[in-house]
Write a protein that binds this DNA or RNA. Structure first.
Lengths: 214, 214
DNA sequence: TAGATTGTTAATCGATTAACAATC
DNA sequence: TAGATTGTTAATCGATTAACAATC
């Protein structure tokens, strides 16, 4: 999309800008300076300007940034202007929870199928989405436009399942399985390792200065 | 706990070391060099040694690291040697999914209560954990040892709920609400912003070179 | 002892912040 | 025009990698 490679640090911040701009729009704010936004977001104004300028000059000297325009531009950068079909593989607790997430649909991420191998869930419908037999995974992908595969399966089977979806042409995997996936091809993987997050919290809690409680 | 402050980048990598060491133990590997571990983890050996030495010299020249010993040490560093009680606030889909997570319990994170405000879920039991009225939140915390509060509530109420648990002495919040919490005191907050993660995936998918498909 | 590999210091790289000229 | 604020270059800071002496 862009000429030079954008660093991972910058990409990580984009959704946060998106969220703050969304809130500003809701609050009816029309324009904002990098300085004011920096106060709200607890980052430096310099970083905001630096980040945004990776993608283009969205502001105007002496004025700042038009909130709605910037929001739209960041939405486009994030690829939120096009609807993206998702399939969820693994109809367990998280799989079901994700299928129920209305906020994803709002941003253009539409779940069109859930796959599992358990007869207990196959045939059910979650949030209007059918749970199908994983045996039909390949057939389904070949007959539908699937942009993102969400993996909520046990880590033991995650690499195989990843292989299967990638070989059908899926190029984005949202991985909730607690294992690293190494896919050679041009595929993007985003990991949500919940227990890693919890362990970091645990570390930071332990590292907190002791409270003097009686 | 330690003298000098450990950088966030290092802390983020600790759970990953923990996981790889766990797998090595299961595979019956007794010792490992930073070099071999670096190959498996796709990081530099230098980084591994540098990271570990923030916490102490766990290795031995000419030998490497004893897998089980290192695993135990990292567990301790992460605070996994002590059981930590959690409460989940918000008995919706994710709240319920998290309560069902067996792998947390395995690492010493035990959910002892779920809170909600909806009569439809109050009184239910999820994975053996009772769902209670949020009105009883303060009383419960005062009568139990609660280390971590998990927030799976709508973002509109998240800041208030955070305030409530913090004022009862809870010092760690695992925040799933899609909003930033700014707590002044000595409280640690770890955010799991699922839609941020999904948007990053979406960006990276959009930035992928186009495939020439017919 | 010789070989291997750590612990640690020094060099490099990249990301963040500061500064300011350009310009609305 | 004067004032404000961006876009962008330069300076600083921190994190990663390389190198090697210490040592098992």
């Amino acid at each position: 999309m862009e000429g030079k490679e954008i660093s991972r640090a910058v990409i990580k911040r984009l959704p946060r800008y998106h969220r703050y701009l969304d809130e500003l729009m809701e609050a009816g704010v029309e324009r904002i300076s990098s300085s004011e936004l920096s106060h709200r977001m607890h980052v430096t104004a310099s970083q905001i300007r630096q980040d945004l300028n990776h993608f283009g000059g969205f502001g105007q000297q002496g004025y700042g940034y038009n909130v709605e325009f910037l929001y739209r531009e960041i939405s486009k950068i994030l690829g939120l202007d096009a609807v993206k079909n998702m399939i969820i593989i693994g109809g367990g607790n998280i799989g079901q929870a994700l299928a129920n997430f209305e906020s994803f649909k709002k941003r253009g991420f539409v779940t069109i199928g859930i796959f599992d191998n358990s007869p207990q869930v196959i045939g059910k419908t979650i949030s209007g989405v059918p749970v199908m037999d994983i045996a039909h995974l390949e057939t389904f992908i070949e007959n539908h436009e699937v942009s993102i595969a969400v993996l909520t399966v046990p880590k033991s089977v995650a690499p195989q399942i990843a292989e299967r979806v990638v070989s059908c042409g899926v190029r984005a995997i949202w991985n909730f399985a607690h294992t690293d996936l190494h896919i050679g091809e041009k595929v993007v993987i985003e990991n949500v390792h919940l227990s890693d997050s919890l362990m970091q919290l645990s570390y930071r809690l332990s590292a907190l200065p002791e409270v003097k409680n009686g």
